[in-house]
Design a protein around this nucleic acid. Sequence first.
DNA 1: TATTATTTTTAGATTAGCTTAAAATTATTG
DNA 2: CAATAATTTTAAGCTAATCTAAAAATAATA
Lengths: 221, 221
Amino acid sequence: MNNLSAVEENYLKYIYQLGETQNGIVKTNDLAYKLEHSAASVTDMLKRLSDKKLVSYKKYYGVSLTKIGQQIAIQVMRKHRLWETFLAKNLKFTWDKIHEIAEQLEHIQSDELVDKMDEYLGYPKFDPHGDPIPDKHGNILVPNVICLTDAKLKKLYILQNVNDDSASFLKYLNKIQLQLNDKIKIIEKEEFDETMLIIVNDKRQITISNDAAQNMFVKSV
Amino acid sequence: MNNLSAVEENYLKYIYQLGETQNGIVKTNDLAYKLEHSAASVTDMLKRLSDKKLVSYKKYYGVSLTKIGQQIAIQVMRKHRLWETFLAKNLKFTWDKIHEIAEQLEHIQSDELVDKMDEYLGYPKFDPHGDPIPDKHGNILVPNVICLTDAKLKKLYILQNVNDDSASFLKYLNKIQLQLNDKIKIIEKEEFDETMLIIVNDKRQITISNDAAQNMFVKSV
DNA sequence: TATTATTTTTAGATTAGCTTAAAATTATTG
DNA sequence: CAATAATTTTAAGCTAATCTAAAAATAATA
Ligand SMILES: [Mn+2]
Ligand SMILES: [Mn+2]
Ligand SMILES: [Mn+2]
Ligand SMILES: [Mn+2]
């Protein structure tokens, strides 16, 4: 039981996620952009989260999660990803619809509910977008993936993980019939704009923009 | 999509439920008691709901739902009862735990989610407490029940419906092993305090207080 | 029916979470 | 390294949803 508001939980979650690419330190403006709030609102909330010992905040420098703040962030992600799994697997939602609903469901407060959902779903390790689902104790199985933009030419990869928070990107993947676990080999890369020609499952050839590739993560076979 | 806050949705739901026993008109104090808010807060909110044309509110007289307010109230109850069904049937929660969690889940905004849950659960007609689940169009199968306090002596009844919002009452029913669809026959009623001696499923005899009987609803066989 | 009791509304305040505009700090660059 | 640009914070203000205390309206009763 953490008893935080949905707004506070979202702050912790996004500080966690933005911090992953950095060294854990997140800038005010990056949070403001992610949350679609003004920078002033963010500063305001960071002070309150700091008072609650959920973040360490240093003026003009940045913010990072405390131990307890991090634990809460991970539990929110756990709920988000378990709900996404339920929506996709059990209710047959397409993967472009589930994120938005999970944004609401992740704030339902009941530890018992989370654990029962986990059990009901068979303790899934990854959500429908390939994101790892933290376990009850907050352990996360970090998948060994690289961004498709960093993948080598003529090498075989498997699509492991896609960025889940843009429905339009996921709809685009539906349209070009690209799914998780598809085999991908880059056969050519345009020097000018990084557009790449790839072969999917040793069969189809498709062209992928750099923008698209940036949202795709693969592992070598 | 109604886009009301959880607070507004709760007001509509409780106006609906309190109005059922009246002629649809609900008094400020009754709402305040149900919501555990001050009467002043209720008056304030009623004015705002009135501005939004969700209720008709007459000062010092009472409040009732407009057509649109009623439709929203019914959809909130639909969601509440579908979620309770999921929690009990699929996740194996006991019936005393589900109401509190459903109080949160009923405010998740997604028409598609509600319909998919309904289908997933097999279009249930009643929730785990015997309350009717409104269909997609807001139709409610009103069950023909009477309160156990109004039941006749020596007549056979079936327990159809219990009041769901008191966990302690439901835990008490667990303890005395009384469930929905149990057969009940009142064999004696104490004149002093209305305590009744009943036979359950033609086997066990138990004593039920008037307070308990007021939360139980039965139909004749 | 006049007085008293109860219910309901109004008035004024508070808190969380947001905004814009202005001020302060830090980063960039000629 | 000083001027300028970008980022961040502060200041002031707004709305939704709550509160308490006081005033007003309605209901009960002697
Ligand atoms: Mn998601
Ligand atoms: Mn996901
Ligand atoms: Mn309930
Ligand atoms: Mn119920």
